[in-house]
Amino acid sequence: MSDLVPTVDSNEPPIRIKDLHKSFGDNEVLKGIDLTVAEGEVVCVIGPSGSGKSTLLRCVNMLEKPTSGSIKLLGAEMTDPDVEVDQVRTHVGMVFQSFNLFPNMTAIGNCIIAQRQVLKRSKAEAIEIAKKNLELVGLGDRMSYHPAKLSGGQQQRVAIARALSMDPKIMLFDEPTAALDPELVGDVLAVMRDLAEAGMTMMVVTHEMMFARDVSDRTIFMDGGVIVEEGPSAELITAPKEERTQVFLKRVLDPTHIEDSELGQTEPD
């Protein structure tokens, strides 16, 4: 599947974020984020609910407008009003927690629409590329199904195929398995692992610590709108240095380990 990942022609790293701030009203969710993702690198972002990790990912392709700071995607300054954001987004695939497939289109229809409308590909070419990507995610036999007839795991894999059909240079994943039944998580993670191994540049917000440890090159721990700690994934997850990271990982990796004072509290996200 290496043919899926075109080389980035710019000398800039695919993602370069500088001093990013984002506020919703008086609530400052991101308090100065600096982050660079190199070509072919897989970066996982972990952290407790409300830490700003999803907001960070959504700022990357401007689904949320940053309050201040700089976001360079493939060399293009996304906060510059003169930059064609739509144009840059065609190179950046995004996968959502709630799949967000178009319910009125079939699986293959979902993968074709933007190829036709945005990339102006011929119908035959779009169908061919869509088929290839649906087969890649293991859904070659579900192409003409509507999303409502697919399981959550299948829907999320269609969503990945839809993003891949645009031949993206970067893939963003916003808690892609958080809405799935536990037994369906594995299929989605397997597709993401294949993608990572093929050399795709990926930024993944996730609660799957094993995936972060085994698949990603680097993991970032966020809390309270700042990056608390970052480092090689295996190192950060197995031997975190910061106390906040340690507390968070202890809770996530061993949910039964709960202090008496915390009983009754949950960890939603």
Binding site: N100, F102, P103, N104, Q117
Partner: peptide, 29 residues
């Protein structure tokens, strides 16, 4: 659902394309 708009925009579709191809067909239903 607002996720429909976000999904279409993240695929590089313009506001107009998103409205015409994704939002309106669902809204009219």
């Amino acid at each position: 659902h607002s996720g429909q708009n976000e999904a279409a925009r993240s695929l590089g579709m313009t506001q107009g394309q998103t409205m015409f191809w994704v939002i309106l067909p669902q809204a009219l239903r």
